[in-house]
Simulated scan of single mutants.
Amino acid sequence: MLIQLHQVSKTFQSNIQQVEALREVSLKVNPGEIYGIIGHSGAGKSTLIRIVNLLEKPTSGHIDINGVDLTRLSPKELREIRRSVGMIFQGFNLLKTATVEENIALPLRLTGLSHQEISQRVEKYLAVVGLTDKKQAYPAQLSGGQKQRVAIARALSHEPKILLSDEATSALDPETTESILDLLLSINREFGITILLITHEMNVIQRICDRVAVMEHGSIVEEGSLLEVFSDPRHPTTKKFINSQFPQSALSLLSVDEQDGQPVLELSFVGAVTDQPILAEVSKQFQVSPNILSGNIVPLKNAHYGKLIVQLLGDREETAKAVAYIKSTGVKVEELKGGEAHASLL
């Protein structure tokens, strides 16, 4: 099921001032993909995801689901299309006085399903989220991760084509977050459900998303496939999110005497090139000694992305050859610091 937003803006009016939460946002989510929107607090993410199913009405612009403009629907027509859109929240939104079974069943009763069909769906989706044995438990008896699994089962029980995730893992510890992300991946693959999620956590984006949009001050400042955005970030906010996954610059580890005019390079690896022994080849083919100062490799959904801070020790001619070789392998090279003798290497 295709989601499209066309020039969507949202302004909130108070007695004191107007707040532009969204500014002419346009995006397209393809059927069956996991699309992530990342931004800092106040960027407009939550407003945007609530606009997708018209929980929040836009000030201007259009929201299309499978070619149907939601802003033109009657209340009855909107209720019908909302049945194809499930939503999970950071705060779980479970009824404290209802059991796990009742939390899933109650919304289904409102849709007019038979008792047998409701029972079948409760059993089915509790099995999907791995909580069959918790059917008679109350929310207070569950961990945070289990509560979120119940919320996911409740959303899935309506058998939606789209699942909206509003910071669904931000209240969870890292280990539980990983298990919820694995569950979302499994749901996407098994049922073909399109997932649109918002988060402020880069590890969520890199772990499960196919494409990503970066938001700031109510606008999308960068968008693309996960590999595109990681390998060639353009906007400063995007770069900050990506750099948060890597150690701080190691330049401070080098004294002035140690630098001695030798270039310090940031090498960015993406995809298959991360598995190649490039620096080993450099030391074999050229009279250069790579001095690795820091680095890290982070897993993406279908690939890996890595960064190394490297000082190349050698004369100007050999160093230039080594840099040219590294770039020829597909590694992105950026000179962070170096002496005058190496100023024109890149």
Rank of each mutant, 00 (worst) to 15 (best):
R121Q: 07
S255D: 09
V29M: 06
E335P: 00
L126Q: 10
R207M: 08
H158L: 12
H200K: 09
V288P: 02
L254T: 09
G271Y: 00
I195M: 04
S244G: 14
D210Y: 03
L22S: 10
I81Y: 06
A137I: 00
R23E: 15
S14P: 00
K57V: 11
K135Q: 13
E101K: 10
G145V: 01
G42H: 05
N291E: 06
Q116I: 04
N103M: 01
T11F: 04
G42E: 06
V273R: 03
E222Y: 07
L183S: 08
H200A: 13
P58H: 11
H115A: 15
L164C: 04
Q262D: 08
Q285A: 14
S268I: 04
Q18R: 12
Q136M: 05
Q13K: 12
E335F: 06
L78M: 05
M1L: 07
P247Q: 10
S186E: 11
I65C: 11
S114A: 07
E258A: 15
R154Y: 05
E24V: 02
A137R: 06
S252R: 01
Q17M: 04
P263S: 11
L312K: 09
D260M: 01
L27Q: 03
K134Q: 13
G144P: 01
F269N: 05
V273Q: 04
H115M: 05
E24D: 15
D210V: 01
N203C: 02
L196T: 12
L267S: 12
T274G: 10
Q4M: 05
F89L: 01
G39Y: 00
L55G: 11
L172C: 13
S289H: 09
V204N: 07
I88V: 15
S344D: 13
N296K: 15
L226G: 13
S14F: 02
L313P: 00
G112T: 00
P299K: 14
A250L: 01
I220Y: 04
R189H: 13
T237Y: 02
R154F: 06
D260P: 00
L2T: 14
L110E: 06
E56N: 06
V214C: 05
I118D: 12
A98F: 11
Q311E: 12
G61C: 07
F269T: 12
F286R: 02
G67A: 09
N302M: 04
E228R: 05
Q146V: 08
A324K: 11
D232I: 00
A155F: 02
E178Q: 14
R189M: 06
D69P: 00
T97K: 10
S46L: 01
L94G: 07
K124C: 04
H304E: 11
F286E: 05
H115P: 02
R234M: 06
I88D: 08
L336C: 06
S294L: 01
N188R: 02
L197G: 06
G44E: 02
L95Q: 07
N291D: 07
V310D: 13
R149V: 08
L251K: 08
E77Q: 15
V229F: 03
H342R: 07
S14W: 00
V214K: 03
V212I: 15
Q285Y: 13
F92M: 03
A320Q: 13
V273E: 07
D182G: 05
D69S: 11
L172K: 09
Q285C: 05
S231R: 07
L346N: 15
T47V: 12
K57E: 14
L70S: 13
T319P: 03
L265V: 10
P290E: 13
P263D: 12
V298F: 14
S9V: 02
Q148D: 12
